[in-house]
Design a binder for these strands. Structure first.
Length: 581
RNA sequence: GCACCCAUAGCUCAGCUGGAUAGAGUGUCGCCCUCCGAAGGCGAAGGUCGUAGGUUCGAAUCCUACUGGGUGCGCCA
């Protein structure tokens, strides 16, 4: 249920009735008519812009149209009051029973309350993390992982059929570097002195991989040339790294549906197939690019290359798919990969990249647009940097010194729930400050704590009610008569709950899971405020001594809050807590 | 040089496919703990929404040009 769409339908009915009665022209575009919560609660529960939108095409004054709508809307039992305001807004106050219905819906539907049919089962592929299989995930990947996973859950909640996917970059030169680095660790495990030169990965995390390789093949490869062992070591090493990465993701609570190997595109004709599709559209040609502007690479010289006419699909310049030596650029398998996603029948694609890949957005969109004839939309979400702090002091990372902060460092210190929630308290395109100490503080300014505290508070009330012999099972609460729940402060909380289904749709449509986190903070704030009012106004306390029926109505409300917090946290991948300790 | 992202209160940030008097936290100031719901609560002050134009009933939101910050720009992935 979504009250806002219900009431919008009611408004549209009223407009249609006026058309039927000849009070409005028959051919009006009503798409721009919205029903939304007014900024100021004094204006009512909902406001519609219908009269202002229709005024011009209908050739009437907005306030006149609004006035005519008032009478028709008031004839519906759900509308308690309607008045024209300002330039032609129509402010509506809803019958209390509708807000009581919201509470009941939350109690009966639980985690499904707010679920939307918006996606209509359309299939969406969300590709995220996709870190090179050369080492453990670091903080930057962590943000991408949290964002992508929450976005996927959000879309699923909004009625899409979602596939979570990881693209393994196991086809380029970086996995050769990995293989050589592991080979060095292998030699080391055999008791040899080794030196890690530039162009190798010196990290300790490869030590066990070298050991494992020794276990597997013994001394067979010790004095052998690279040609003998490279392929096998590469496969062994990337498998080991992917195991590591899977463990990292599991520690964060992220599970992928598909791991797609870049390597599987090579030597199988799949890259050629994708490029043929582009060639058939006249988008592949041999040519030379202008030299890049700005600082020119030292060894730049004009060269003939195979180019994709991405500029025909919105890119600034055309992009090479083959290097001058004839081998593929990174872009070529990427095209083939997205071609594969399209051919698997997805209705929409989403890529989550780090901000340093911003330069790839246009060419990737161009490729998908060309390959799908514009039928499959590709949205690319860039996640900005995470700035780490410890007790207010910036925390420096250095890859060279080996002091870069890994996903495990973060999760081990603050836990997966805090990590995930904090990473979603900024929109994806804004930098994020992550302070190891502040995220664990138990104060209002820490949203993780504040939201969890609200949930725990409700659980505490339920426990006390049970101890007092009051039945507070969801089934009982859902059946409780809520007619006495009429206090403005209580209805205000119910109104906030009524926004939840609408928020899901907005967040899903914009691909912005952070909206869920901010909503939960607001909802928690509503609950805490109501709790605090109980301090001075005993009538607002959730647990009323010697009045079990009254207690049940109030507990139904706060239990509904807990249900929505729990559902929201579920989308973010955070476990709600029953008590603070 | 070009492209993309960003610019909102002293600070950190929200702002819902364009809506009414732009919100929250923090900081500042004032008030409130003998006890029964203070890991705090209530209230106040604080904004030319980077600048200048444009679109329209209406712009923080859309368009254009600037200013300032970040990221990226063939043979790395």
């Amino acid at each position: 249920m979504n009250l806002f769409t219900d009431i919008r339908a009611l408004v549209l009915d009223a407009v249609a009735a006026m058309q039927a009665a000849g009070k409005l022209p028959a051919d009006l575009d009503t798409a721009a008519i919205t029903v939304e919560p007014p900024r100021d609660a004094l204006h009512g529960d909902m406001a519609t812009n219908a009269a202002m939108v229709l005024a011009k095409p209908a050739g009437q004054k907005p306030r006149d149209i609004a006035g005519a709508l008032v009478g028709r809307l008031l004839s519906d039992g759900r509308i308690a009051a309607a008045e024209v305001a300002g330039p032609g807004f129509l402010n509506l106050r809803l019958a209390d029973a509708l807000w009581h219905g919201v509470i009941r819906a939350a109690l009966t539907q639980r985690a499904d309350f707010g679920r939307s049919m918006m996606g209509q089962g359309r299939r969406v592929n969300v590709e995220f993390v996709s870190a090179n299989p050369t080492g453990p995930l670091h903080v930057g990947h962590t943000r991408g992982a949290v964002f992508g996973d929450a976005l996927a859950s959000l879309l699923a909640h909004a009625g899409f059929e979602v596939t979570r996917e990881y693209y393994i970059n196991d086809g380029g030169a970086q996995v050769d570097v990995l293989a050589r680095s592991v080979y060095l660790r292998y030699l080391e495990a055999q008791g040899h002195e080794v030196a890690f030169e530039d162009g190798t990965y010196p990290g300790d995390y490869l030590r066990p991989v070298g050991e494992a390789l020794k276990e597997k093949v013994g001394a067979a490869w010790v004095d052998q040339p690279e040609a003998v062992w490279l392929d096998e070591v590469r496969a062994f090493a990337t498998d080991a790294m992917m195991d590591l990465i899977r463990e990292d993701l599991a520690a964060l609570g992220v599970r992928m549906d598909v791991f797609f190997s870049e390597k599987s595109l090579y030597g199988t004709g799949r890259i050629e197939e994708a490029l043929k599709a582009l060639r058939d559209k006249g988008l592949i040609y041999e040519g030379m690019l202008e030299p890049p502007k700005g600082k020119l690479p030292e060894d730049w010289e004009p060269r003939q290359q195979t180019l994709f006419r991405s500029s025909a699909h919105g890119d600034d310049i055309d992009r090479p798919v083959r290097k001058s030596d004839g081998s593929w650029t990174y872009f070529a398998p990427d095209i083939a990969y997205h071609f594969d996603k399209i051919s698997r029948g997805f209705d929409a694609l989403i890529d989550v990249f780090g901000a340093d890949h911003g330069g790839y957005v246009k060419r990737m969109k161009a490729a998908v647009s060309a390959l799908s004839d514009g039928k499959v939309p590709l949205d690319i979400k860039l996640t900005q940097l995470v700035r780490l702090y410890k007790n207010g002091e910036p925390f420096k990372m250095s890859k060279r010194a080996g002091t870069f902060v890994t996903l495990r460092d973060v999760v081990d210190q603050v836990g997966p729930d805090v990590t995930r929630f904090v990473m979603l308290t900024r929109k994806n395109d804004a930098p994020l400050d992550f302070d190891f100490d502040k995220v664990l503080e138990q104060t209002r300014e820490n949203p993780v704590f504040y939201v969890q505290y609200a949930h725990a508070r409700v659980c505490s009330v339920l426990r006390k009610a049970e101890a007092a012999g009051i039945d507070v099972s969801d089934a009982t609460l859902a059946a409780v008569d809520l007619a006495d729940l009429t206090h403005e402060a209580e209805l205000g909380v119910a109104r906030k709950l009524g926004e939840w289904p609408r928020l899901i749709e907005t967040a899903a449509r914009t691909h912005e899971p952070h909206r869920v986190a901010f909503y939960l903070y607001d909802l928690a704030s509503e609950l805490h405020t109501l709790w605090n009012r109980g301090h001075d106004e005993p009538a607002l306390r959730f647990l009323q001594e010697d009045a079990p029926a009254t207690s049940q109505t109030k507990i139904a409300l706060v239990r509904a809050v807990a249900v929505v917090i729990s559902a929201g946290l579920g989308i973010l991948g955070v476990t709600p807590v029953d008590e603070m300790r």
